[in-house]
Each structure stands twice: as C-alpha cells, then as structure tokens.
Design a protein around this nucleic acid. Structure first.
Length: 571
RNA sequence: CGGGAUGUAGCGCAGCUUGGUAGCGCACCUCGCUUGGGACGAGGGGGUCGCAGGUUCGAAUCCUGUCAUCCCGACCA
C-alpha cells in the first residue's frame, strides 16, 4: 500500500473527548472515527488489525474442532421470549419493530438463536458434542459506553457455543477452550490471566475471564491474585481466608447505649473504643424493588454482585433514608436485623459475621447501639463480601494482591439454563428426551485490539505486536524527489510484497520528520528508511519497539531478509 | 438514572464576565523557499457559534427549556 493512497489521516493532537490511551491513539492515528456514542467506523488500518485478530481466533478455534457459522444480527422477539430473557435483559437489549409491527431486537449475544438452531438440527446423542462459533458485530445499549473500543455499544465478538450430553463432557470441552484461549491471546502477543469470575446475567455456574492486566483505570475489573499459588479471581467472585476466631467486643452484657452522631463505622469504633471488626454492620438495599438487609462485619464491605446472586436479583441499589424508616422501622446508621419483619424483608449474614462475639449492633433507634450482642444459633452465612488487598488467599493463606484487568475473553459452563427454558432437547441412548448441557465462550475482538494498545504504546504512539500489526513494514524514502532513494525504496517495497510481507511505502511529499512521526504513531513494527546513506548502498533498519535512535545501517537485501525472519517468527 | 464538566470550521482552542454581526493554531488549496524527527513566507477556501424558545433595535455572549458528548457510580466481550 502506498501511503499517499491510504484512506487515513493522522491528527497532530489528541482528541479532546478521549481519555483512555487506546482511544486517544486509535483516533489520533486514524484507525477509528466515531459516528455516535460507542459506535465507530473501523478505518482501513483498524480493519486490517481486526482481520488479523479474527484470523488467529478462527485458526485456533478450527484447530480445537469448533465450526464457524454466522447467525442473524437482527432477531425476532420470539426466541427471546422463549428463553425468558425478553423481560429480564433490560435496556441493553435494543428493541425495535419491523414494518409489520413485529417486535425485533439487535443481537447482544446469541444463546437463544444457537440453542433453537441446534434443537432444530440435532436430535440424537450420536451427533453430540458440537461446538460452533461466529465472529460478528454485537450491539449492547450500554448504560455508559466509554474508553473508545474498550466499551463500545457496537463491538465485534467471537462467540462460541458447545452442546453436550454430560457435565463431564462439558468440562472436557471447557478445558479445550481454556487452552485455545490461552493460545489465541499468546499468538496476538498478549499475556492474559484466566481468573475465576461471576457468571452474571448469562447464567451458569463455572466461568473464567481472560484478563489483560494493566495498572490503569481502563482496566475495569479488579483482579485478586495470589503470588504463591495460582489462585486468581475477579473481585465480584474473589474469596479470602478470614480468621473468624477471637473477634470479641469484650462487652460483658448486652445493653443499649447512647452513641450520638456515629453514622459511620469509624465514628462508632472510635466512640466506643472498639475495633471495627467488633461491630456488626447492616447495609440496606432495594433488590428488584424488594427490601434486603445485609449484615457484615464492620471492617468489610458488601460485594454487590455477590449480593445480587445471593438474593437472585437483577438490580440493586442502596436503600434511601426514607425507605429505611418505611421498610425497617429503623434509622440510617443504626440498623439492626432483629426487629425486621422477616416475611417482608430478606436478611442475609455474610460469612465474616461468623464467630463474632459480644459485638456492637444498631439498636434501630437514632443515636443508639446495642453492645455485647451475640448472634442466634441457627443463622446461615453466605459470602457477600468484597475482598481487600492483603487478605489471605483462600487456598494457601498467603496475602492476596490486586491489580486492574481488561476482560478480553470469557468462558462459561452454562449447563441447561437455556436448553431447559427453550425446551431444547436431544434423544439419549434410552430414547429419553434430555436438555443439552451447554457451554459458551466469548472473545471481544475489537476490545482485544484496544487492549493491545493499552499494553503496547509509548509517548510516540502505538507499538503493534507483529502478529496483529496492520502492516509489518513502513518503507520511508526520506526525499521522494531523490531518484536513487525513491528507486531503492520502491525496489524494497516490491520485494517485500512479493514475499507476502505486508509493507507500506511512504511516498508522500512530506519532510522526513512528518513521516517518522506518523510511522511511530501508527506503530509499524519495522521501519526501513532510505536516505543519504544510499550513496554507500545502505538503508536504515529500525524496530518500533526500540529506542528512537537505535537502528542499524545495512544493505537493502539484508533489510529484506531481516523483515522476512521477523515476520516468520512473529516477533 | 444520580454527581461533575463541556458543546464555536475536519482537529485543538479563544471570544461570553461588560450584547454591536466570529477569530487563532493545526489540517486543506495555490505560489515561493526548504527537505533526516510534526520547517518558513505570502495568498486562499471552509462555521445556521449543539438545537428550540425568550429578552433586546441587535444574542456565540443574557434567560428558559432541550439535546448531545466526556468524566465518576450501577452493566459487560
């Protein structure tokens, strides 16, 4: 490709409406153009990167035995009603009506369609297992799109679905996919960590997320991991080993005491001179419009995803002060669990509350707490707390570390959630109808592109891994009006093309500085500069990842050979 | 939906306080000069000032409403 013909314009400045580095660089280097919030045009350079990633995904998926297909992007409400998700998916599902006034939607995912398609096609256990996938645009009307391609509303995803006759076979395939994912991201030049996670609205039990670890805010997930064993988990799923022994407030008898102006745990702990972990904190929520009180040790916080799962809710929010009076007949900051009407209000106890003795508890009266309280015997404890850095690994009891992560893929063991809901069955050996046992496996293709930039860039621009770079080599004649330079550049360019090495020739009539800046910004892994040293028969060979002044002067033939080696070895 | 901010040329911004009919830099076009890390000079094209009302002789500027975008929380590949 000749640079003068490339449909691309770099900008001199970063766009104002971008914050994430991948977003800034994608816009500035001309890879993407925003059409609407969270909706972008992929310009030719971006499209090439997306194709590279897609091809790696395709290659590895095919190798794993999965088959590629392509499902409709616009879908009738019917299949969504069948699975029950038409009513629970909420506003992320963009709905519309066709000309006959039939309800339709833009696909945010494809469990429904694939389940009904497989049910139509495969009726015997003899045809199972099967794993099918597609690479396609998805649309999710996100509450808040942000960070450019990291959280767009429209994005490209690889989604795979597997169907099995047994849990054991699902688990086997799950391992195959885990290995496939590790291979895919590795080939893309990305280190990922597979972490345990919550399975969320998609449903199911076991799931792992593939995270690109970063230190920046754009990693939207907190990942807890152990340095001495391989435990790692998303904060919405992480657990820690908590010492529940000897958490004793030391109060000799239970009594109500005055605790004026102690709405926070810190205030209260100071006022009563106890440790925060000797206070049993109550946090009140409205979950799917029903009141819930979550009891948790004073030094811990509620993990709201866990809480939602524990009560089976899709939406939760903190209770407002007026609702605390209305539902709990209590006072914000002084809530207990003892006086609630349990037929109307659900009460949960976090595991951290286990073993607490003679603790402090709200008295349901403003400015009053109970001290020396103890829990009743028959209490059931659930895990609804957020892990904090430094808490102990649940496996090996070493301190946990936390880091940010960008989720580029995930794998789920769905089980029979969708097959049962949609009555999608096969006939087993005994002639009985059984629902398929399913798994699903996603990769954010466009997000992977952005994540790679988050990971690989410097002050000058993007530094693409060779495997997913839009082009491998940028051939830059310093002065296009110099006949020797231009001829040599053209020859190198032609030679690279004939070797199937992807090259651009920067034949634009600009000063060298402009071309160098663009080369760095766009992030070509290799730059071959044809300048004055052509009089000695030499060109400059420079790697993008190396320092700006680090380069070697070699003959054009050697330069081509080096490109060949690098592209062959993908480094 | 809650909290904060911003909408003026393709991009980045000034002008708004104190109303007087729109400007700067980059990019773009022409000419000259230059040519190894985003040169320089001269000339030129491009904007219903987010949108709708209102106040006023007159609104980018003041008032009201509305829409959009960005950042922080709930969603997630």
């Amino acid at each position: 490709m000749k640079m003068s013909k490339l449909f691309n314009k770099t900008l001199r400045e970063f766009p104002n409406d971008a914050d994430a580095m991948s977003h800034k660089l994608l816009v500035r280097a001309g890879f993407i153009k925003k059409l609407a919030n969270g909706i972008y045009t992929y310009m030719p350079l971006a499209q090439r990167v997306l194709n590279k990633i897609s091809n790696i995904v395709r290659d590895e998926m095919n190798l794993s035995g999965a088959q590629e297909l392509l499902m409709p992007f616009v879908q009738p409400a019917e299949v969504w009603k069948k699975s029950g998700r038409w009513n629970v998916y909420g506003k992320e599902l963009l709905r519309c009506n066709d000309r006959h006034d039939n309800e339709m939607c833009l696909a945010p995912t494809h469990e429904e369609v694939i389940t009904s398609t497989v049910a139509d096609t495969i009726t015997s256990y003899k045809d199972l297992p099967i794993n099918v996938y597609q690479i396609q645009t998805k649309f999710r009307d996100e509450i808040r799109p942000r960070f450019g391609l990291l959280r767009g509303r429209e994005f490209i995803m690889k989604d795979a679905y597997s169907f099995h006759t047994s849990q054991a076979d699902l688990e086997r395939e799950y391992e195959v996919m885990a290995q496939t994912y590790t291979n895919i991201f590795k080939r893309c030049g990305l280190d990922t960590k597979a972490v345990q996670s919550d399975s969320g609205a998609i449903g199911g039990n076991v799931s792992h997320e593939y995270m690109v670890l970063t230190d920046t805010m754009v990693g939207e997930n907190d990942v807890f991991y152990c340095q001495s064993c391989d435990y790692s988990a998303n904060s919405n799923h992480a657990i820690s080993f908590l010492n529940v022994e000897n958490v004793d407030g030391g109060f000799e008898k239970e009594e109500i005491v005055d605790t004026p102006n102690t709405k926070t745990i810190d205030d209260l702990a100071k006022f009563l001179n106890v440790k925060p972990n000797c206070i049993l904190k109550a946090v009140a929520y409205i979950a799917d419009s029903k009141p819930v009180v979550a009891m948790i040790r004073g030094d811990k916080e509620i993990e709201e995803t866990k809480l939602m799962n524990a009560v089976g809710a899709l939406e939760i929010r903190p209770m407002e002060d007026s609702e605390i009076v209305e539902y709990l007949n209590s006072s914000a900051g002084f809530i207990s669990y003892r006086n609630v009407d349990k037929s109307k209000v659900k009460v949960l106890f976090d595991k951290s509350a286990k073993g607490m003795k003679n603790f402090v508890l709200g008295a349901d009266i403003k400015d009053k707490h109970i001290v020396g309280a103890n829990l009743e015997d028959n209490i059931e404890f659930v895990d609804i707390s957020l892990v904090k850095e430094g808490e102990l690994c649940p496996i090996c009891k070493k301190p946990l570390k936390v880091t940010r992560g960008i989720e580029v893929g995930n794998i789920f063991q769905l089980g029979t959630k969708y097959s049962k809901a949609m009555n999608a069955c096969y006939t087993d050996e005994n002639g009985e109808l059984k629902p398929y046992i399913m798994g699903c496996y996603g990769i954010g293709v466009s997000r992977t592109m952005a994540a790679a930039i988050e990971k690989y860039h410097d002050d000058f621009g993007i530094i693409w891994p060779v495997a997913i770079a839009p082009y491998h080599v940028d051939v830059v004649p310093v002065d296009i009006n110099d006949k020797d330079q231009m001829e040599t550049a053209q020859k190198i360019y032609d030679a690279l093309n004939s070797l199937k090495i992807e090259a651009v020739l920067d034949d634009r009539d600009y000063r060298a500085g402009v071309k160098f800046k663009d080369a760095d910004l766009i992030g070509f892994p290799i730059r071959i500069t044809v300048g004055k040293s052509i009089s000695e028969g030499l060109v400059e060979f420079k790697l993008r990842k190396d320092n700006k002044d680090k380069m070697v002067k070699i003959t054009p033939t050697d330069a081509i050979e080096k490109c060949k080696q690098m592209v062959l070895n993908q480094i």
